[in-house]
Simulated scan of single mutants.
Amino acid sequence: MPITNLNNTHLTIAQVETAKISLSALETALQDITINLSAEDRQKYGSINEQNKLFVNKIYDFNKNQPNLSATEVDWAEFEKDFTSRQNYEALIARLDSLVTRLKNAKILHDYDNYQAALTDYAYTAYKAGTSSPGYEVKQNELKQFFGKTSKTEGIPPASQP
């Protein structure tokens, strides 16, 4: 028998509304700095790799500690603003990625629970259809479309496909 009800924690309507309002506030707060790049722009500008981040960090350190060695052609005030913004964005992205991962994990458990309950209901439907109980044969025929034919247990998919 499969394990079910892996996640019995559910958001209340108030929590969902608070989360939506908070996300809207976050979107509004970040509206001025979020840019919609085209696929070509993302490819062209890309993201600097770890080695290049270390290079940028070293240049930043040299500018802070030995500014007399820095190129006068560089707008160092803008360089520092870009540097600080990049750090701030990375920190926000890390937190958002962590939140997204945790939300996906919770959703996976709810998906699994729904799928197991649906399989249980389908098995019950098949049983009742076999007893000629009214309505169950129609229900079973409607549900059969979701399952491929198998040689051992016709109509029941493997549990690993939620």
Results as ranks from 00 to 15, higher is better:
residue 64 K to R: 13
residue 122 Y to S: 05
residue 72 T to R: 08
residue 91 A to L: 08
residue 72 T to K: 06
residue 101 T to D: 15
residue 105 N to V: 06
residue 122 Y to D: 01
residue 68 N to R: 11
residue 79 F to Q: 03
residue 96 L to R: 10
residue 97 D to M: 09
residue 85 S to L: 13
residue 54 L to R: 09
residue 126 A to G: 06
residue 124 Y to F: 11
residue 92 L to K: 07
residue 112 Y to C: 07
residue 82 D to F: 13
residue 119 L to K: 05
residue 50 E to D: 15
residue 56 V to N: 03
residue 92 L to C: 07
residue 99 L to G: 00
residue 124 Y to T: 02
residue 84 T to Q: 12
residue 49 N to D: 04
residue 59 I to Q: 00
residue 103 L to V: 14
residue 104 K to M: 10
residue 78 E to P: 04
residue 65 N to K: 15
residue 75 D to C: 10
residue 99 L to T: 08
residue 76 W to S: 11
residue 126 A to H: 07
residue 107 K to V: 09
residue 48 I to V: 15
residue 99 L to F: 02
residue 61 D to Q: 07
residue 100 V to F: 04
residue 63 N to Q: 01
residue 123 A to Q: 13
residue 71 A to F: 12
residue 99 L to M: 03
residue 78 E to Q: 15
residue 108 I to M: 13
residue 75 D to W: 09
residue 103 L to M: 07
residue 101 T to C: 05
residue 102 R to F: 02
residue 114 N to S: 14
residue 84 T to C: 05
residue 112 Y to V: 05
residue 76 W to I: 01
residue 105 N to A: 14
residue 95 R to H: 11
residue 102 R to Q: 07
residue 119 L to F: 01
residue 61 D to T: 03
residue 100 V to C: 08
residue 89 Y to R: 12
residue 115 Y to C: 13
residue 112 Y to G: 05
residue 114 N to W: 10
residue 75 D to K: 04
residue 114 N to P: 05
residue 117 A to T: 13
residue 103 L to C: 04
residue 70 S to R: 06
residue 87 Q to K: 12
residue 92 L to F: 13
residue 87 Q to D: 13
residue 54 L to E: 10
